[in-house]
């Protein structure tokens, strides 16, 4: 059996709001395997982005972190800023939803792609610029030579996202974290970018952690899935198993709320809304919206063992 590239263990993230610590992420555990796409899916505010940021310890000082993020024999969460700098962008890279805000508007595309190579790989600028050209080819940007000299505002949203991917891949990282990389794009452009990421993952033997709220995207790109609700991973497993036999009441309900383009079917909403981190319910955080709530649900359920695991008192085999 291959061993995980990264192990996230009992990760918790709290923020101090009005003098009270609020647990936004409530002790989540998952592995990232080599050369796979792991999708973290969930609705707005359920903690996907801060979970992703904490894999590189990128959270503001106001956040309190607990648990472990094991990677390459180290615990990322206990590393010093200087050690983190060496890992970020080099062995673990991240791309975001809105490339316009994460690209530097006054630097050319070429300069921005070359920068991490100069910083992390000790390349000279002219060598780095050459490599930047190769990277634009890798992300299939036509007319690469011309694009190198352009500024972000001269590019379309889809092209900007390709540039972000090129920057992310510059130092050949082992893990690429992509936070809603296609959410701001039109569907046809989204399809292009997803296909590109998939091709690159295979070519480069990369692991991708894809954060998304779109179950359609998950079904099409994931190898494994972690479903998050209100700061908990409530279900995780291989993608086929999650979609063929969803187990957690939240996963089941969520799948019934997505309108599908290929068939008309009865939408059934989940009543209520995701709780705010200041008002998290005790125990299972989904219980107040759950149709299968039991008397045990005021205690937080743990994920069951096994490849496809679920954290729910109404689902038998859990402690």
């Amino acid at each position: 059996m291959t061993s995980p590239l990264m192990q996230v263990e009992d990760l918790s993230i709290s923020f101090k709001i009005n003098d009270k610590w609020c647990r936004a992420v409530n002790g989540v555990t998952f592995d990232i395997m080599p050369n796979e796409t792991l999708c973290i899916v969930g609705e707005s505010g359920c903690g996907k982005s801060i979970t992703a940021m904490s894999l590189m310890k990128l959270l503001p000082d106001t956040a309190r972190l607990g648990g472990h993020v094991r990677f390459g024999g180290q615990d990322i969460l206990s590393l010093k800023e200087r050690e983190l700098e060496e890992i970020r962008g080099s062995r673990i890279a991240m791309i975001f939803q809105e490339p316009m805000t994460s690209l530097n508007p006054v630097l050319t595309v070429g300069e921005q792609i070359a920068e991490p190579l100069v910083l992390h790989k000790g390349m000279g600028w002219s060598e780095a610029k050459k490599e930047a050209r190769n990277l634009l080819d890798l992300v299939r940007i036509p007319d690469a030579q011309k694009r190198l000299g352009q500024y972000p505002h001269e590019l379309s949203g889809g092209m900007r996202q390709r540039v972000m991917i090129a920057i992310g891949l510059a130092c050949r990282p082992q893990i690429l974290i992509a936070d809603e990389p296609t959410t701001a794009l039109d569907v046809t452009i989204q399809a292009q970018v997803l296909a590109l990421l998939e091709d690159i993952r295979k070519e480069q033997e990369l692991s991708i952690v894809m954060i998304t709220h779109d179950l359609g995207v998950v079904a099409n790109v994931a190898d494994r899935v972690a479903v998050m609700y209100a700061g908990d991973v409530v279900e995780t497993g291989p993608v086929a198993s999650i979609f063929d036999s969803p187990s957690h009441p939240y996963t089941q309900a969520l799948l019934r709320t997505v309108p599908r383009a290929d068939a008309a079917f009865e939408l059934s909403p989940i009543e209520g809304q995701v709780p705010s981190i200041q008002k998290m319910p005790e125990g299972c955080r989904f219980a107040p919206r759950c149709k299968e709530e039991t008397s045990k649900c005021n205690v937080t359920p743990k994920l069951s063992p096994g490849a496809h695991s679920v954290a729910c008192w109404a689902r038998g085999d859990i402690q």
């Binding site: 399809a191 099409n220 993608v239 383009a261």
Partner: peptide
Amino acid sequence: AAPIPDISRRQ
């Protein structure tokens, strides 16, 4: 291009 949340439609 619209992704369908159904594994049998994965493509």
